[in-house]
Design a protein around this nucleic acid. Structure first.
Lengths: 239, 239
DNA sequence: TCATAAAATATTGTTAACAATTTTATTATC
DNA sequence: GATAATAAAATTGTTAACAATATTTTATGA
């Protein structure tokens, strides 16, 4: 776990700063779901007292990024398939509302801002800098929410953005196929520029569905019956 | 403040229980926005140690129900007008999505459940039991979310429900005019029964707009200029 | 009597110590 | 060598004491 947290022991970080760094480590896929978060270790890593870490873990648990079990400590959360599906479905609702709100108030400066961000994202992809590309693609969604100007929608979207990697990594793994498709960001900006709400929402939904549709219960391996289990090993079919 | 918290010193409540009781006091309009939440007092009231209260306050602050200022303690939050407007606008988005999801899966048993709840609510109104009526009208919305079956939407609606009284009490006061209109709950159930998504959403939006439209910046009193302020008192116009 | 400064009290923030529980390592037994 | 029991170590949970800060009360001077 130590390698996945920034080298933070330098300057006595605040509670908020520690919170942010752990969140960022989740977002960057550096802290996989299920990772045990030990208080003393974190306190040493960040150069803070254990009490501060306990506060941070409380907050992270309250946000569902972390599962806290009494006497067993904290782990990075592992959402169920159902929760993953619910999260993505809700994400479609929130992102659509953001687009609608944004388009009702958009101006040319806003569009230029978005295109500039898209440009950075595209260059990062071209350079093969996948860490930066990931960060910028996340920023794209954040920026839409910030520009829409509804602080509650923004808050919920940021919450969803923080939780999305947990779903993806838990159920699909860390594969570039499961990230934002960059060209869809461009198409969304085009639709925004054209003030075309319907089209923007349509593309956004496709954008999200390409990941969402893969989140489902995997077929369970057929359960061997008791008779099969009790047969001598030589007579069993290969597993 | 003591009178507004349940008599909780009896049985060593858990952290979650203390959290719930404070949330409920906000929801019941017993804890007005701006109320100072003193740690030692709360600890004595609930019969717990101060450390537990600090954890609860951290969680409440993280949920924006409470404002925590360093060295000055915690107060029940007082959302701005803008935040109130954003919250209601977001509520319309979330409630609409819940209705849509619910109607896609509704059966007769669900409709009966909702009608039963509505009946209790109507009887409370008729008896003039306004505390119970308030609680049941809140439960109506909660129930819609629970029955829709998307846990993330449910979570966000519950968050919104907890924060809504803060907006109303801060900006409109504790007036029965600013509560749910009971007949609109009935009309929403009718639309659900008819699987009429469009109509259900329309009524829900009207339901929320009757409060939302009152949340706005009040015109500021004209600011007296310096000349007026420096005139002898006898020559000043009445305030 | 009013305004200001000083003192006292209350409240919030932090900490290390200790208790309780869980996990890991070691030892004993078959 | 495998398993169970025991011991040791690690981790989480709780607490009271103390530090730091804010608020309230009291004293003093004009």
């Amino acid at each position: 776990m130590a390698a996945q947290i920034d080298n933070p022991g330098r300057n006595n970080p605040s509670e908020d700063e520690v919170l942010r760094q752990i969140e960022q480590a989740v977002l960057d896929h550096r802290l996989p779901p299920g990772t045990k978060l030990k208080e003393v270790q974190l306190a040493n890593l960040f150069g803070v007292k254990r009490g501060l870490i306990r506060k941070v873990l409380t907050r992270l648990a309250h946000s569902r990024l972390v599962d806290q079990t009494p006497n067993r400590g904290a782990r990075v959360a592992q959402p169920s398939v159902k929760e993953g599906q619910d999260l993505f479905a809700t994400r479609r609702v929130i992102e659509s509302a953001i687009l609608e709100t944004l388009i009702a108030r958009v101006d040319d400066k806003t569009v230029r801002q978005l295109r500039k961000l898209l440009g950075s994202e595209q260059r990062a992809y071209q350079r093969g800098d996948s860490e930066l590309a990931l960060a910028l693609s996340v920023d794209f969604h954040r920026q839409l929410a910030a520009l829409a100007g509804n602080s509650v929608l923004e808050e919920y979207l940021n919450d969803i953005i923080r939780r999305t990697p947990l779903v993806i990594l838990t159920h699909l793994g860390d594969d570039e196929q499961n990230r934002c498709r960059n060209q869809e960001h461009a198409a969304i900006i085009d639709a925004i520029e054209q003030r075309n709400v319907k089209n923007a929402i349509k593309i956004m939904n496709q954008h999200l569905m390409h990941i969402e549709s893969k989140i489902r219960d995997k077929p369970k391996a057929p359960q061997a019956d008791l008779e099969t289990l009790l047969r001598p090993a030589a007579e069993r079919a290969p597993a």
